[in-house]
Amino acid sequence: MAELFVPQTLDEAVGFLESHAGSATPIAGGTDVMIDLRTGGVRTEWLVDLSSLGSLAGIDLDGEQLRLGALTKIRALEVDSRLARRATALVEAARVLGSVQIRTMATLGGNLCHATPSAEMPPALLVHDAVVEIAGAAGERSLPLADLFAGPGRTTLEPGELLTAVRLRIPASAAGSCYLRQTVRWSMDLAGVGVAASMEVDGAAIVQARVALGAVAPVPLIVPEAAEAVVGSELSPATALEAGARAAAACSPISDVRGSADYRRAVVSILVQRALRIAWLRATGDWPEGLLAPINGLLAEEPA
């Protein structure tokens, strides 16, 4: 049995975690921590309940700057119509996480700090150049999201540190993003492969692009060389194919119940091509605003 500490301020939370390093575990939505406690994956003397820290929840969009509080519920991301238009990958990742019940409980910060390699939110955030804000007893710091992940279930947070927010850049126009995934079941499943893409378009040319992968390496991956394959021209089947091949070459999937390593590499290539295509259609205004893509990105006019 664990004791419960309920801090009323961020300082109080950080102070307690610092002074009880090794014996205290933060809990927010609880959808991972409660399972870890039950299965013995986490043993702790203290649960530090963050749910009273209301200031850590919220979605603030100011021009091109988006700030997501760590306690923001996944469900809140899923139903935000501004994000559906401007940061579609985030909504497409949020809507496939767990079930309605899990999304109503689970928080963005928890999804990141649990550091599950197949987590939905990291790839979608990575293609929007996410930076995480961290509070600790020694003060605040921030770092690129990619540098938060140290391995399966491990982050680079120091003992006593808390992730407090995620900052993103959301281009105001001529931009699009997309998150797709492959699963064995449509719902209540972890991604076998997760792929996010984003791009900005000037005239008919892609001027900036990002490709990120989930579930195919020990940590979520950004693949700059895949994105570079599509920069400088309009998106064509050939440039998308090259990007898919580079992404497949960059990942290091395992074989498990959700697919073999070879299968996952093949799916990475396909999903990267589809995600780039959908991001391109969004960036060029050829996709209905706010409409989410099929979960695996398969469009009706494409050959199956």
Partner: peptide, 8 residues
């Protein structure tokens, strides 16, 4: 809706 088995 939430799952009460994971809710403190």
């Amino acid at each position: 809706p939430i799952v009460s088995c994971l809710q403190l």
